[in-house]
Each structure stands twice: as structure tokens, then as C-alpha cells.
Design a protein around this nucleic acid. Structure first.
Lengths: 292, 292
DNA sequence: ACAACTTACGGGGGCCGTAACAATT
DNA sequence: AATTGTTACGGCCCCCGTAAGTTGT
């Protein structure tokens, strides 16, 4: 199963059009048609229904596989090439929005700047994006945050053999407006909040289905959804009463008018982890400084 | 990065010889030489040192990626083909050795036999083998056992989008010879046993590094290692004093002369899970019967 | 009728085998 | 000298683009 055919198939399925996909990929639409036909012949199944173009059941199934496969293929290429490329003169850092609660990003940049002739780049993105970016060589180092049981590693998507090191582990709190009925409580059990209105902000706070898994309920119905990585905006939404959010206690305290109530049980903490593949020389220095 | 080249590279690296790998794969050794050269040219790195043939650092790195990639590629193919193949007339079941402690395998076979014209096959293998076998289509259904925190899913290797359902959850116990000094205890804390001698039987009992992770220590140094899936033999080894083992309490009781001490903390249970990809019709019936 | 996908066909490149060559033991 | 990997070369097949054909709206 040729990965190029796979890539083409994915493009066609996503765009819903052979000709558009062909244009995207720099092929003629005839070539794309032949490629999809070849893939279907190889697998012995129709993958797409035509006119309108939509994946069949088998096509849907293949799509579920194709993404991770192509990702890992890219990751392998990037990882191997890193080992023989010219000595790196730049250091690209990917970080999730709340990964720098303990000043991690600032620390990295400071360390990086101390090295001569290394261009630094920092980019904030969603956790999955950071992880896959590190795997695929887009970033040299990734800082990813999330919540987990104390001592447990974060549940990262599998994108190949990446090295993960703990950077920080800090308390989390349920963020509430100061006027909220629960604002006076000393601690809260997560299960007791399953029926509350929660903000669904998967790029900043734990995805709601992770909360369901931790609390072992099927509550935590999503209220307002926020797609993005700006923590200040999220804190504003909480303050405005749009819903609760589970955040590092330190972050909740930054916004006046909010209170952070510790989570009594189950015990969870906010973790930041450093993720990387094969390290270039400057990245190695920075990584060592951060986790020492 | 052509998967065929990847497969050839893996074969050469594993066999340590171009000519032997060529013979295995049905190529001439010239073709293999050209394939490896093409892969090296594509990646811009030397992957193998010749004479003797051994992977370079980049080659080692690629090898770490290649296995999972080829696995997932096979899994995708098997998964999609399952959707359009002829109606299945056989049902291949993979199971780990201790997955049938509650009679799961027997139940499956009984249900399967009730269906006309379906050939049944059962095969016991190591957990990783069962999981990858299901992913790659070798098995229609997999029964995998292991230990985890109550309610937590088992830590299965990622082999693609597989469906997992809980079958049983039972107490585990530390298996001891009746004459053992600890044999009279009502319960034991796992951490307290980090310095004991443990049997390392990764195909039957939790791998020792999983125990280390659960107990958060770096003890559990391996004593005797048993590679295989015969539970009776393992029980004999425990009875002979070769080391401790964490096993389903029910299994420990099967062997006279052994005692099973419940684990007080951290709380862990023995779980059996049913694993499958896209289900063929008979497999669907059997799976439904088992998890209802 | 038109837009969009498929099929026919020809050229070019890639891949494999044969065979000659090189290098290591 | 023998074994093993590489290079040269030629044929075959695969893949893409052009262009004609087909199909659904």
C-alpha cells in the first residue's frame, strides 16, 4: 500500500473532489483518478462513492488509519534526517498555552539565547499539534501540559518513539467566578461537578471526555466551546459565568474575580512535559537545562 | 518513503546480511543492495555499515520507527479488506494465557459452535502478539488480560483504531509458596515487595516494569525469567520458590501449596478485554454474546 | 450542455535481474 | 580464492500526462 496513494486518497476524501485534490497535490485529475482506482484495486474494495464524492464504509475505515500512518512516516523521516543534517543553527519550540505556568518557556528561551548563533522560534499550539509537530520535525522541542493523576504521564497521542520528561507538576483547581455558589468551598469532588456547566476548551484545558474518564461518569456535558489558545480569554469566559474550567491553580489566581477551588478527589495535578525526538546539539543543551 | 524499501531494510538489518535478506524476500542480492541504497539516498543518511552489516545510529532510529509503521500499514489493509471480503466462514480467536480465568474462551467457543458453518480457531499468545494479530487481521477477535487500576483500561500497544470492551475484572493476588514467611499476611502493599525476588514472565503476568510504574519504585529486579504462556509451569516455579508473581487470585488458588495474598495498595485488578477491529458477522455475534 | 470522473494510449522513469566489478576475509 | 556487496546495463512495468470517452446533473 503505497503511501503516495494513501495521501492522494486522503486529499480526495477531504476535499470531496478529485479535481480539487489533483490541483492541491500538483497532479492532473486523471492521475488522481488512476491512483484512487489503483488503491481500490489493491485493496479490493470501493473506497469512494463518486458524484458526489464521499467515502464508503471501507473508505471511512481507511481514513481512520491513514492519518496516523502518514504522520508516523513523516516522523520517521524527520527523525532520521535529523541525525545527519548539517549542525542545527535554529531551535524551534512548540508549546501548549499553559505549559509555561512555571516560566518554562521563558527559561528555555533564556537558555537558548545564551548560545551563540542559534535562531530561536517559539510557537503556541494545541497539545496534539505540538506532539505531532515534534514527531514530524516541525519542532525540535515540545512543551505539553495537561492534567493527570500525580506521577502519571500525560496521555499523549502516539506519534512514534518520542522521549518525554517531566518539567513541572502543580496543583489544579476548578475555576469559578467569585460570586458562584460554590466559591466558598474549601475543596470539591470532581464527581460532584459532573452536572455543572463546563467550558469545553480542548486546546487549553483538559478535554471534557478526559474529565469523564477521570471521574468515571458520563456527565460533564459541554456548554460553550472555545477553540483557541488564549488563556486570558478563557479566564474572561469563566468570570462571565459561561462555565467551569479545570486549570492550574496558579493561572486561576492571575485573574481577579475568580476563585480556584482545589479538587479533593480523584487526585489530579497539572503537569508539563518536555517532548522530543532525536535532539540536535543546541536542543540538547536547552533540554538539559530545563529538566535538571 | 516506500514501505517496500522499509521492509527490505528491516530484513537486512535483522539478518545482518544483504544476501540472506534477499533470499528471504525473494529478491536478488543486487536488488536488495539497490533498495537500501535508494532508501539511504532518499533520506540522505547512511543506514547500514557494511562488512559487517550493522545499522548506523540513523539506521537504529529508523528501525525503531519501521516496525510500528509496517504494522499499522498491515493493520489498515486487513481492516479495510475485512469490509468487503466474502462473508466470513471462519472465526480466529487470539487469547492471552490468563484471559480465560472466568471461562471467557470457553464461552466464546460455545457461542461460536452454535453457529452453523463457521470454522473456529483459537490460539494462545503473548499480549502484544494478540493485539497486533487482531490489528493485522490474523485474528478476528482478541482476548487480552493484564492488570490495571480498577476501571482503567489495559495499557495496550497502539496498533491502530481497535475497539476494546471489558469482559471481566477480578481481584489479583501475590502468589507465594505456603511456606513463605509472608504467607500468613492478610494483605500486602505492593511497594513493600519491591525488594522481593519476582518472576519475570511477561507473557503471563504483568511485566516487571509495569509493576515498577504502578508502585512508583525502581525495584522489582527480575529473578528467573519465564518466556512462554503455560500458567501451570509458572505456578510450579512460584511453588518452587523461584520468585513471586502477581496473578488473578482465582488462578493462584488452583495450585495446592500456593497462597494468594490480596494487594492492599495501590489498588489493582486483573482485567480481561475483548479487542477487535471491524467485525465480520460471526465475530459480531460472538462478541455480543460475550460482553452482554 | 457542462462539469466531473474514467479510460485509452504513449512516453519516461524507476525497479529488478544478469553480469561484471570491487572489497574484505 | 571465496564470499559478499556494488555498479553497469538492459528490459519490463508502473505511473503520469494528454486526450478522448462516459456519466450524472
Amino acid at each position: 500500500m503505497n503511501p503516495y496513494l494513501l495521501r492522494t486518497f486522503v486529499a480526495v476524501a477531504r476535499r470531496g473532489s478529485f479535481s480539487t485534490a489533483a490541483h492541491d497535490l500538483g497532479y492532473t485529475q486523471s492521475a488522481v483518478s488512476q491512483q484512487v482506482a489503483a488503491l481500490e484495486a489493491d485493496l479490493g474494495v470501493a473506497l469512494l462513492r463518486r458524484r458526489p464524492v464521499a467515502p464508503t464504509e471501507a473508505g471511512e475505515r481507511l481514513l481512520a488509519h491513514a492519518g496516523p500512518i502518514l504522520l508516523r512516516l513523516n516522523a520517521a523521516r524527520a527523525d532520521v534526517r535529523r541525525l545527519s543534517g548539517v549542525p542545527a543553527t535554529e531551535l524551534r519550540l512548540g508549546a501548549t498555552a499553559l505549559a509555561d505556568t512555571a516560566g518554562s518557556v521563558a527559561a528555555l528561551v533564556t537558555t537558548g539565547r545564551a548560545m551563540a548563533r542559534v535562531a530561536l522560534g517559539v510557537r503556541v499550539a494545541a497539545p496534539a499539534r505540538v506532539t505531532t509537530g515534534v514527531a514530524s520535525g516541525e519542532f525540535d522541542l515540545g512543551l505539553v501540559d495537561g492534567v493527570a493523576a500525580p506521577g502519571d504521564p500525560l496521555p499523549l497521542p502516539d506519534a512514534g518513539p518520542l522521549t518525554v520528561r517531566t518539567v513541572t507538576e502543580e496543583p489544579v483547581a476548578v475555576a469559578l467566578p467569585a460570586a458562584h455558589p460554590l466559591a466558598g468551598r474549601a475543596a470539591l469532588r470532581l464527581e460532584a461537578l459532573a452536572d455543572a456547566i463546563w467550558l469545553d476548551a480542548p486546546d487549553l484545558a483538559p478535554p471534557l471526555d478526559q474529565l469523564r474518564a477521570v471521574a468515571r461518569t458520563d456527565g460533564f456535558a459541554g456548554g460553550l466551546r472555545y477553540d483557541g489558545t488564549d488563556a486570558r480569554t478563557l479566564l474572561e469566559l469563566v468570570a462571565a459565568g459561561a462555565g467551569l474550567a479545570l486549570l492550574p491553580a496558579r493561572v486561576v489566581r492571575e485573574r481577579a474575580g475568580l476563585v480556584g477551588i482545589p479538587v479533593a478527589a480523584p487526585q489530579v495535578v497539572h503537569r508539563t512535559e518536555l517532548v522530543h525526538g532525536t535532539l540536535t546539539a543546541p536542543a540538547h543543551t536547552v533540554a538539559a537545562a530545563l529538566t535538571s
